[in-house]
Design a protein around this nucleic acid. Sequence first.
DNA 1: TATTGTTATACTCTATAACTATA
DNA 2: TATAGTTATAGAGTATAACAATA
Lengths: 153, 153
Amino acid sequence: MARPDPHPAPENVSDAPLRALVGYQMKRAFNVIQADLTRTLDPFGLRMLTYSALALIVENPGLRPSQLAHALAVERANVVVYVDQLEEAGWVTRTPALGDRRAYALQCTLAGRRLYERAQKVVHAHDTRMLNGLSEDETATIRKALAQMEQQT
Amino acid sequence: MARPDPHPAPENVSDAPLRALVGYQMKRAFNVIQADLTRTLDPFGLRMLTYSALALIVENPGLRPSQLAHALAVERANVVVYVDQLEEAGWVTRTPALGDRRAYALQCTLAGRRLYERAQKVVHAHDTRMLNGLSEDETATIRKALAQMEQQT
DNA sequence: TATTGTTATACTCTATAACTATA
DNA sequence: TATAGTTATAGAGTATAACAATA
C-alpha cells in the first residue's frame, strides 16, 4: 500500500516572514515601479537613469560629469555611459570646461530640452498614478521615511 | 579681454525636479538599503534573493520551484540559479516530487535551517535599524503604501 | 496542447581597478 | 600627489526564447 507523499506541494505558500520586512516590501514595490517606469519611458528612448541624468543637465547647465555622478549617487565611471548615450542621441553636448582642461561642461541641446519636457509629463503622471489612493499625509510620511532610510547607513 | 566662462560649473546642483518624484526617492533609498543588506548577509554566504528563497523553502517544505518563482515574483528561469547555489552550499535539496515527474520538492537541510535562523536575526536587526526613528504609525503607513504600490499596475 | 524545470542569452545597474591628462 | 574623465571588467538582477520531459 502506497504511503502518502512525504513532500506534498504546499497549497498556500507562506511568505509572512519575508513580508514582515519593510526592506522586502520595498524591493517588491520598487521592482514593479521600475518595470512600469521603464515601459513608460521606452517610447522616448530613455530609461530611469538617462532620464534622471538628462533632468539634471537640463536644470544645471554646465554641470560637470563628476557633479552629475555625485547628484545621482553613482560612480563617475557609470555616468560616462549615460552621457555617451544622451550625446549620441543628440540631446546633450560635452564642451571643454574653461579653466580646467580635465573637465567638461554638460549642456542639453534644444532637442534634449524638448524631449525632457515631454518625458517629464509622463513621468510625473506615472508618479501620481503610483501614489493613487494615498492621502497627502500618507504621501508626506512616505517621503520623510524614504529620505531618512537613504541617510541611514 | 577674456569673456566670462559661458558654462561655469553650477555651485549648487539642483535635483529638486527629481526629488519631487517618490519613485526617484524609492530608488535612492532602495539602493542604500540593498547595499547595506548585501554587506549584512555576506558573512553568511547569502544575498537578498538567496536569503528570500531559503526563507520560503524553510517555511514551506516541499515547495516547487515554480511556486518559489511565483512567491518571489521572478521568472522560473532565475529561480534555477538561486536553488543551484543553495543546493551546492548544502542548505537545500531537490527531491523528485511524487505524482508529477516533471516537478521537484524543495527542502532545506538541517544546516540550511540553522543558517536561516542565524541570518534571520541579523536581517531583522537590519530592518529595524532601517526604520530607526519612525513611529509605529509611520511604519504602518509605509507598509500600506508599499503594498499598494506593488499592486498598482 | 500546456506545464515544469532548464539552458542560453541579453540588457541593465552598480562597483572597482587602472589609465591619461591635467591640476 | 590628487583629481577629472575614461576604459575595462565583473557581479548581480531581471527578462525572454527555446528545449526536453511530462501532464
